[in-house]
Design a protein around this nucleic acid. Sequence first.
DNA 1: CATGAATGAGAGTTCATTCAT
DNA 2: TATGAATGAACTCTCATTCAT
Lengths: 229, 229, 229, 229
Amino acid sequence: MPPLSIVSPPHWKAFSSRRRDPATKREAVLQTAAELFLEKSYTRTSMNDVAERLNITKPALYHYFQNKEEILLECYRWGSRLIGEILNEISAHCGSGLEKVEAFIYAYANVMTVNFGRCVMRLDEGDLSPTALVEVRGYKRKIDRRLRAFVQEGIADGSIGACDPKLAAFAIAGALNWICIWYEPEGPLSPEQIAAQFAHTLTQGLAARHRRGALWAGVRNNSKPGGLS
Amino acid sequence: MPPLSIVSPPHWKAFSSRRRDPATKREAVLQTAAELFLEKSYTRTSMNDVAERLNITKPALYHYFQNKEEILLECYRWGSRLIGEILNEISAHCGSGLEKVEAFIYAYANVMTVNFGRCVMRLDEGDLSPTALVEVRGYKRKIDRRLRAFVQEGIADGSIGACDPKLAAFAIAGALNWICIWYEPEGPLSPEQIAAQFAHTLTQGLAARHRRGALWAGVRNNSKPGGLS
Amino acid sequence: MPPLSIVSPPHWKAFSSRRRDPATKREAVLQTAAELFLEKSYTRTSMNDVAERLNITKPALYHYFQNKEEILLECYRWGSRLIGEILNEISAHCGSGLEKVEAFIYAYANVMTVNFGRCVMRLDEGDLSPTALVEVRGYKRKIDRRLRAFVQEGIADGSIGACDPKLAAFAIAGALNWICIWYEPEGPLSPEQIAAQFAHTLTQGLAARHRRGALWAGVRNNSKPGGLS
Amino acid sequence: MPPLSIVSPPHWKAFSSRRRDPATKREAVLQTAAELFLEKSYTRTSMNDVAERLNITKPALYHYFQNKEEILLECYRWGSRLIGEILNEISAHCGSGLEKVEAFIYAYANVMTVNFGRCVMRLDEGDLSPTALVEVRGYKRKIDRRLRAFVQEGIADGSIGACDPKLAAFAIAGALNWICIWYEPEGPLSPEQIAAQFAHTLTQGLAARHRRGALWAGVRNNSKPGGLS
DNA sequence: CATGAATGAGAGTTCATTCAT
DNA sequence: TATGAATGAACTCTCATTCAT
């Protein structure tokens, strides 16, 4: 849907006609809710807000979702599915561990600029009921595990230097997840720009790569942070 | 639990006697509130919750703070002060740009495991009033600017490879800020372990540095946090 | 109590059915609130009190009014409208300045025995927010100005003796406004009786008109309210 | 105390020295409270407000008064005493009923510009407990009865035209009591100006006295407050 | 005596949710 | 089917009043 990716119709249009696919309407609710949740947080978004933006009445929402939390949960599910698909594709197509990690960074950075993707990492898990929390934590753990597996692969095949895969994955995931907090759709940075530099910075590091031997080794030692509280 | 005896006394002890330093009590409120805000989020933490944990009544809190938001704002201020101090020390003592960034990562990772530090980055800005929001945004912008300045210094002095300093700072800050979301005080990872690997990973990158001697590999291995799940 | 059957039904009847003109319900709320505000003052009247008297729950009130103050403000508006209409009619129909003032006294005294009219002058302006206060002060000033204009007309056309119109208007308004403080609907004085004597006393004064012909005496006699306790 | 009538010392000075007549302090509390009650109403005046303006602590107030209501009640008593004295003086010294009424209007209008006097008529009786209410109502009734008696005297001695004394007293009292609502100490109207015109308007009426000689016109002119906007 | 600290009761308001039509 | 109306529970905050020192 290339043209739609630029200007998609407002979600409430899905409700303009009586005869409309209920699934479409459900999705419209979801899209609108995700929007609002990201704008104002789940707690500050009232069912009224959602209904208003869709030009429907509040109880109508309860036709499509049992309660507010189900809407939230569906946002998480939708976003997790998006991320899962990325991971599948990467697992299938890419080469070395480092290449997989790089591909992941690139693709994931893009997802973090999409509403449902942002929801997964930006919204507050604490708003979920215990049951739903378990489910969502499951999704997140799975993502983490798969990223970690890429890192481990890389260590094994020598494309990634020795390190603790868990912490490496946390560092990568953190940098990427934080995107969904500072990213602004209307801002100056395009998702691609972000993705590209992040892929580079996280894999190659900040340090200048001088064609160097032992000399630099000493410098690196010195650069170890000492004496900071 | 003898080892816990070095731990500071529970905050509510500050309220056990009527005549006691009000500043101590104020801080006790703040500490307890920060705890709860991190556990359950600001919105889900009621003034009653704070009062209960301190073994006082709700209105007593209003002796020390004008309203709930002031408590929140003070948490932000306290945390921002912590981070500001780190930055000052680094600016004063460190060498090259890369060294500053590394020192920053190390110190900042540690702050992200401390309640007030976590508050700054973990709590939802949206809970602040417009005025307070401006203030807090100011603190955050300042932190970002100073980190970015370190990166620029590094690029200038050749210790950091060419890159967009803004995005580099975002990557670093993201990885670090995310710590305050997954970090658990009782968990298996010590703040130092986290800090050490993050400092390495973010500056040197994941990618293996080829054509390197075994010596370095060993050193890196040693610095790796061991025994992580 | 057959004579009471002409009395309007209790306001809570408006809420007996779920589907009923919302405007009717809004007015019922207003009437009930005005009643209570006059009985117990605005501050001492809780939203619960209003709701209880209407046999509904507190939050239901918020369907019809945004907050407590809006209810208060609407009472002021309603009453001001009543008074404004009086003034319009008088401006249109009456003759000399003195006749206008007399007509005003008569009509106004009656309004001061009606709930909404009483609200305007009896309730405490200090309970209004600054914005609302400006609005209400505007209404009051307008009333004052128009009464003062009648007095000035009277001075100009010779029907009223020389005096400071501002103070004269204050005296008249004061006497009339005070009605809403001592008047009791169930009391022995009918609004008409009050209106009649006030119209006489304020225009003709207390002082006996000595050395006058029978003509004048008779007129005075006729205009005197008879049968007062 | 002529000099004090212009610039009396702030009431909190009574508390500046440890050794001070407790009665003086009590009165200072009363004066301050009356001030605040008139500025913001009894309900909106907190004990804190009173204490703050006196530069003392809240519980100190409870040394001089049992509770907030006692302060209010004392204001009523003080003011009622002032008014009672006026009435006594008039009863003793004046001549005809009309003269007494006129003297009353003059004196009473002045009292209505004094804090304690204003309290009696401006503050909301509803803030009093049932017992106190009975007491205050008693004071008010007494005032009303005495004014009414003057009117009756006037009717009997022919100085006042036939009318219902009760309603006449209400009209006069209303006009006068209302002063305490619109009067501003810093405003352009002096108490004397107000008193003078009110005395005239209420006794002579608004209506021009036709077929009268220049003598009367002149007198009326003199009594008119000049230079009012 | 005087004070800082604390409390209990109650206010207005919001909101997810569910009747009743 | 879909909606306007209604609810109950919860939360923040205020204030007169009273301990404890």
